[in-house]
Design a protein around this nucleic acid. Structure first.
Length: 824
RNA sequence: GCGAGCGUGGUGAAAUUGGUAGACACGCCAGACUUAGGAUCUGGUGCCGCAAGGUUUGAGAGUUCGAGUCUCUCCGCUCGCACCA
């Protein structure tokens, strides 16, 4: 009995049976081959040093209760196509799948229903796995991981301790974004337009002790190392943008009373990207939260006014702060700042357009050449000076690279030189230095949540924060009576009785465990490493496995993850590299991003709109192969695409056509034309898959199938090669027809056909004949025809003669095999 | 405002990177076989025109023998960041 022969002993016996079918029965065919791949472990992969490795990675999904979305298979199929082709080309391909299984939805569901998140997550993972398997992806399921598995998060915790040991993880009381509805602190990245990304409630500021990770220490490298990577441009630019490096200088302004007497020797440092414009500075502004304001309140002449403004600002959310076009502020009366370049005394203000978290929280106002300062100066009647020659500042702040004026020793210098000279002067006189600032802040790593990795730290009265010993890892999630945060906003883990209290690993005194959990970015920051060696209990992955498999050769994922996940995981990887734990400084060689799939009317698919397409329904109605092929054909991979049932039908027809073509297959020699069509197709498909032009790779296949359909009989050689090329796209159908052709191997293990350029070329080419660049006719020309003959042929065309009538030919340009252009 | 990208038929889109614009597919039209099925097959299909022919890649200019492709100006759209000094 043989599975591939549908239970018959021999191919001949099976053949008698299928002769009765004339429709493509995808339901039985797809199930059949999925079972055979499973049984024969067709996609299991091990280290094989004799073969070149290829590591293809797709972002692992969060196993939501809604199941797979049609967007997931777009990414998974694309890299499945690439993986399958690479495998056929002799590469040792690692293409793994897993689950990013910690997260809010499971916890919210638990709060609502009381079902433990581990239980619902497990069910969801089972459902996802079923769906993924129904699509025939060539994942090595033996390597499947889940971030909520203690065997996995043991290592996430272990790595956190490494961050702590290296001084990169620290606790700090900071104003965090606080969602009053979720009772949870949010990273800046989780705040969308001032609202909680999850629940939509307006985010407020709240001071809390949080674990932080010092990602800013890697800011420079996270930008600079992008240069060597093959990431698409918009991904790179978004990373650079997010990190937001700006180069400038810090300058100290001495503070005085209103008569110019030094104020306790106090200096105020500002950050500026334009130290060369300092001669145009007419005032200074501090963030309302600046520590100076409270410390020197009693020295101001208008403390009540100042305090009122500070309080009004505190009530504003970031959103309100951003939205106000109008500049507001209050002068700190009785205080002046001394411009270190000119010695001028300038007024000092507080205003909410200056942010406390960026730079020094203080800026010098140079209204002539900065629009925000210009607006502020207009509002408060402050002088506006131009220090750039010929730049108009009557309507708005002036820009441009021009010789400086009104600028003392900088006069006549242009921007760059003036900048250098200004900094050199500041350094020489000890009031400034060059400085690089970043928008990127350290990573807020605490969540007041249950369903995440426990942070493996304990607090001891005597010894402070201590990591738990490695032998106690994993620190598993305790059971809790309910999943609500407590009223102080502490995580549900604070309700975990016995678990909460332990001994200090250092002095043995009673100590309390950290009750916050890690953000869901934690587990996804290093999962690609675990895939290399997923069952290792001694290490997160062996050195041998990492040396062999890393880097990820090709990583595909959604644009929504190009700032956060990509940045975090690159940072995390770099840190491990610095610790000597991974061999490479960057994890991903190539990053691509698939476009979203929208509903037919161009709207986003969402439950509330009721326009969600369930992959299960498509697979049931048309089969996985049609579904896969359609998603590849839908449009350029990196662009958004609109779902269309009608286009899907077209692909379904095509798949049936391939099935139907089998009846024409005969044991005959291919003709020259046949071979030309075949080699052309091979060359095109091979190249287009490598370039991720999957939609046009599919059209090449369609063109070839159209050609074959027009033949009386199809040579077996042609059909077999067609099946090989189809197998990455429609693996089930390809296996089935391969078996029907009498093959007892798996097509997935066959070799990829090699195209021959010479055989793909026609020996007669059609050349365009143009007059002054306008098409006037075509000529069929044998390859290698001498230029003079081509010209003669072109000139003999009736339409050409007519067009040239009475005109003098000045020049004839012949581009071999392409075009003849007659200039008259 | 800053950064990235895009603009081609009724629709989704191709174009070997400067060389016959519209491949492939959807839709539509006509026909065939059938006789209600979201079946299959054949032919046609950018626009104007009966035709010869003309004309066409958001608008305009430029470079070139030749521009969808390169350069400049303008218009429009999408995404990301956004009072980041």
């Amino acid at each position: 009995m043989n599975d591939r022969y549908n239970g018959k002993e021999t191919w001949e016996e099976w053949r008698k049976e299928w002769a009765l079918e004339d429709r493509y029965n995808f339901k039985t065919i797809e199930k059949k081959w999925q079972a055979i791949w499973d049984k024969e472990q067709a996609y299991k992969v091990e280290i094989d040093k004799n073969k070149e490795k290829f590591y293809a990675l797709v972002e692992f999904p969060y196993p939501s209760g809604a199941g797979l979305h049609v967007g997931h298979p777009r990414s998974y199929t694309a890299l499945d196509v690439i993986s399958r082709k690479k495998r056929m080309q002799g590469f040792n391909v690692l293409y793994p799948m897993g689950f990013d299984a910690f997260g809010l939805p499971a916890e919210n569901y638990a709060i609502k229903t009381g079902v433990h998140p581990a239980v619902s997550t497990k069910e969801n993972i089972a459902n996802f796995t079923r769906q993924l398997k129904s699509l025939g992806f060539s994942f090595d399921w033996d390597r499947c991981i889940s971030t909520c598995d203690p065997e996995y998060y043991k290592w996430t915790q272990w790595m956190f301790i490494k961050f702590f040991e290296k001084g990169l993880a620290y606790k700090d009381k900071i104003a965090i974004n606080w969602c009053p509805s979720c009772k949870v602190g949010l990273a800046n990245e989780e705040v969308v337009n001032g609202h909680c990304e999850r629940c939509g409630a307006e985010v407020v500021r709240k001071n809390k002790e949080q674990w932080m990770i010092a990602i800013t220490k890697y800011a420079d490298r996270l930008i600079d190392d992008l240069n060597d990577l093959d990431f698409i441009e918009r991904v790179k630019s978004q990373q650079v943008n997010w990190i937001g490096r700006s180069e400038g200088a810090e300058l100290d302004f001495e503070l005085t009373d209103k008569d110019g007497n030094a104020l306790d020797g106090k200096k105020m440092t500002v950050f500026t990207t334009r130290p060369d414009t300092t001669f145009g500075v007419t005032y200074m502004v501090l963030a309302p939260e600046h520590e100076f304001v409270q410390a020197y309140m009693s020295r101001f002449e208008n403390p009540q006014e100042v305090q009122d403004y500070v309080e009004a600002t505190a009530k504003k959310s970031d959103l309100q702060r951003n939205m106000s076009d109008d500049k507001t502020g209050v002068e700190l009366k009785g205080v002046k700042a001394k411009n270190p370049y000119t010695g001028d005394l300038i007024p000092v203000f507080i205003s909410d357009y200056v942010l406390t978290g960026y730079g020094t929280g203080a800026v010098m106002g140079m209204p002539g050449h900065d629009q925000r300062d210009y607006d502020f100066a207009k509002k408060f009647g402050l002088p506006i000076i131009s220090i750039l020659e010929g730049v108009d500042i009557s309507e708005k702040a002036g820009e441009g690279d021009a010789p400086h004026i009104n600028s003392g020793f900088l006069n006549g210098l242009k921007n760059d030189e003036a900048m250098k000279a200004a900094i050199a002067y500041a350094v020489e006189h000890g009031f400034g230095k060059s400085k690089v600032n970043f928008k990127l802040r350290d990573w807020v790593f605490s969540r007041q949540r249950y369903w995440g990795e426990p942070i493996p730290m304990v607090y001891c009265e005597h010894c402070g924060w201590q990591p738990i010993p490695e032998s106690e890892l994993p620190l598993t999630l305790p059971e809790v009576p309910d999943y609500h945060p407590n009223d102080e906003g502490e995580s549900p883990l604070s309700k975990a009785g016995d678990w909460l209290w332990t001994k200090c690993p250092k002095c043995g005194a009673k100590a309390r465990r950290e009750t916050d959990t890690m953000p869901n970015w934690a587990g996804s920051s290093w999962y690609f490493l675990r895939y290399c060696d997923p069952h290792n209990s001694e290490a997160f992955a062996s050195k041998e496995a990492l040396d062999y498999w890393m880097n990820v050769d090709w990583y595909n994922g959604g644009m929504e993850h190009t700032t956060l996940h990509l940045l975090y995981s690159r940072f995390w990887h770099k840190f491990l590299h610095d610790c000597g734990l991974v061999p490479t400084k960057e994890p991903y060689n190539r990053r691509t991003s698939h476009g979203m799939i929208l509903a037919e009317n161009g709207e986003k698919m969402s439950k509330s709109r009721g326009n969600v397409i369930n992959p299960d329904d498509i697979v049931a109605a048309y089969g996985a192969d049609t579904f896969r092929l359609y998603e590849m054909f839908i449009g350029p991979f990196e662009q958004v695409a609109m779902w269309s049932d009608e286009s899907l039908m077209g692909v379904y027809r095509f798949v049936n056509k391939i099935y139907g073509l089998f009846k024409k297959v005969a044991d005959i020699e291919p003709t020259k034309d046949d071979l030309r069509a075949m080699h052309k197709c091979i060359l095109e498909v091979t190249e287009r898959v490598d370039q991720l032009k999957l939609n046009t790779a599919v059209s090449s296949l369609m063109t070839y199938v159209n050609y074959l359909s027009g033949l009386e009989k199809v040579s077996a050689e042609l059909y077999l090669n067609l099946l090989k090329m189809l197998s990455p796209f429609t693996p089930h159908l390809a296996e089935e027809m391969w078996a029907r052709m009498g093959k007892d191997t798996l097509i997935v293990a066959e070799s990829w056909p090699v195209g021959d350029k010479t055989l793909a070329e026609d020996n007669v080419v059609t050349m365009a004949v143009q007059i002054c660049g306008k098409l006037r006719g075509t000529i069929d020309v044998a390859k290698g025809m001498p230029q003079a003959e081509i010209e003669k042929l072109a000139l003999s065309l009736d339409n050409v003669k007519r067009q040239l009538d009475g005109k003098e030919i000045r020049k004839i340009i012949v581009v071999p095999n392409k075009i003849v252009n007659i200039v008259a």
